[in-house]
Structure formats: C-alpha cells, structure tokens
Nucleic acid binder design. Structure first.
Lengths: 166, 166
DNA sequence: GAAGTTACGTCAGCCTTGTTGACTTTCCAA
DNA sequence: TTGGAAAGTCAACAAGGCTGACGTAACTTC
C-alpha cells in the first residue's frame, strides 16, 4: 500500500491480527455491556428484550409501535409479546393517536420510568467508569469506530436519535 | 468535580447524555458487527453459537471443552449441543487428551477451517472498513474503551488471547 | 362511497440458544 | 481403592427470535 511507504504512520492497525483483536474485544465488551441490566432483570419476569423496549420508549416518549419496531429490528409479534406484558404490568402506557387513530403512542408510566432509571443507572455506571478510565480522546475514537461499523440504516436511526437528544 | 473547574478540558464527555449515546452506539454497532456472519449462517443449519465456537477453536486449536466453556460463558449442555452438530458434520475434531485422557482437545477440520475463513473474512471486511474510516487513533481509543468495559474475568481472558496471538 | 392500504393486535407453531437437574462413564490422584 | 474432576448425555423448560394467517379499525385514493 502506498501510505505505508509514503509515511511513518503505517497501516499495521489494519492487519488481520489487529482486526481479530477488535472482533474479540467487541465480543467480550458486549457481555460486560449487558451484564448489569441482565442481573437486575434476572430477578423480575423481564429480560433483555424488555430492557430495550423500555430504553427506547424512554428515549422517544410517544413513539409509535411501528417506529419502535424499526429501531429494534424485530417483528411486531415479537415486540408485541414484550409490550403486552409491560402494558399489563403498568410500566408502559399505550395511547391512541390523535391525528391518526390507528397509531398507538407509547409512554412510560411512573413505575416504568422507575425501572428505566434503575437499569440505565447501572448501565451508565459501567459506561462512565470505562469512559473515565479511557479518557475523552479514546471515547471519541470509540464512538467513531462504532458508527462506522453500523449498517447505513442503523446509522441513520442512530443519528436521528442522537440529534433528537442533543 | 474539581477537574472541570481546574482545566479547560471539561468532563462533558461523562454527562448522562454522552453516556446514553455511547450505549446506543454499542447497541446499533453490535447489530452490524454480527450481521454478516449471521447472513452467511442463515442458509446453513448453523447459528451465532456455532460461529462463536468455531472462532475460538480456530483461535486456540487444541483447546479443551472446559476452556471453551469459560471463554464462551455458557453451560456445557448448551455448548455440547452446538459442538455435537459441528463434530457430526465433520467441521470439528475432538481428540482425547494424551496426558489427561478425560479431556477432549478441539480442532477444526479442513472443512471447519473453510467455514471459519468464510465467516471471519466477512466479519473482518466490515471491521476493516470501519477501522479505515475512523483511522488508527480512533481505533486505539475504541479498543481502550472496550477493554475498560469488560468484567475483570472477561478482560483477563481477552488479554490471554491477545497475547497468545501477538 | 367503494376499494385498497396501513397500523396494530393476536393466534398458532416453529427454531435457536440459553438454563437446571440428574445421571453415567472415565480416569487421575491421594 | 476410593473420592472427585472432566466429559457426555437425557430431559425438561424458558426467552426471544421467526413465519404465516387472520381480524379490525382507520386512513387514503379513486
């Protein structure tokens, strides 16, 4: 490659060996990433799927079922099972749309917001520790690589969420 | 916090908002991370669990079942089901240990190595594109944050693997 | 106003991949 | 020789994905 010859900055970070380390880092890190919420949910009747639904409803209150579907990337049957229990248990409220009555807008109830806080506090605590240990420059790189790793569709959704919350 | 007051470099990267973005980035990126191998495996009778087993057997040829168990973090019954099909299909070979005949040492057959290559080529291609897009500095930060995010046990295993392959 | 489309919910059934628990066989080591 | 570790296996179950089919209400289009 020309860059390797032209400059001191080589392309050694693109070797298969380096890529493999990145792949394994993703594998192990994701386990850590989900470990704390999983532990909390383990006692309750909920799982990771409930966590995801709660997260994104909290994130975008009033979101429609269809919208949530496309963010989570699952089928409506799969989401419905999860949503059903959350609504029945009084963690999520489903309101019929005003302008389009076919739509259901989803909101967390106070009880749902409580669980959301418990879960995200735990997940953020780990994230915060990792960020603090690695420092702001590393964090920027972390985010850059993750964004580059997403599928275009996913990246668009991520960007939309990112802007909305900024 | 004193650092925020003391220096120009603030701790804004540790705000809940920034942490939430990191959490969502992990969520969407992991989907991309697994998408390509998943697509390949979809046609065959295998799934993500088979991919993981194949990856780590390739990574550490001759590893024992117990060792693989602790790396993958699943029960032996769960791993056994996956391993059973891979052995029956002639992708993995299980050799009785020489010094300790209770142990089984696992190896990929040529056929298994073929599939491993197909899968890891696809996964590395995406990784490489992401690395290239983000650049070496970002990649270093990426790896730092991921390592800091792991549980201590996972980090130890990751480090061991990392050194072994370096 | 009729016909088609969209949003949502639900029933039924299936698959993968994780779990526990119980039990056997094999084999090393004290 | 006996206890315990390693491995394998059977059975049962649960979470959380999936497809397919169907129903209903509401919106859109012709």
């Amino acid at each position: 490659m020309s860059e390797a010859a032209s400059g001191g900055e080589s392309l050694l970070f693109l070797t298969d060996e380096q890529l493999r380390k990145g792949i394994e880092a993703m594998f192990f890190a994701y386990r850590g990433f989900t470990a704390d919420p999983d532990r909390i949910l383990d006692g309750m009747d909920y799982g990771r799927a409930h966590h995801r639904a709660i997260h994104f409803i909290h994130r975008s209150p009033g979101t429609t079922v269809n919208n949530l579907l496309s963010i989570l990337g699952v089928t409506k049957q799969s989401l419905n099972r999860v949503l059903r229990t959350l609504i029945d248990d009084g963690l999520v409220e489903s309101r019929v749309g005003r302008v389009d009555k076919r739509e259901r807008h989803l909101f967390l109830t106070p009880k749902g917001a409580d669980l959301e806080r418990t879960l995200s506090d735990a997940q953020r605590a780990r994230m915060r520790a990792a960020y603090r240990a690695a420092g702001p420059v590393a964090v920027q790189g972390f985010r850059q690589v993750l964004e580059a790793m997403m599928d275009p569709d996913q990246r668009r959704q991520y960007q939309t969420l990112k802007e909305g919350g900024a």
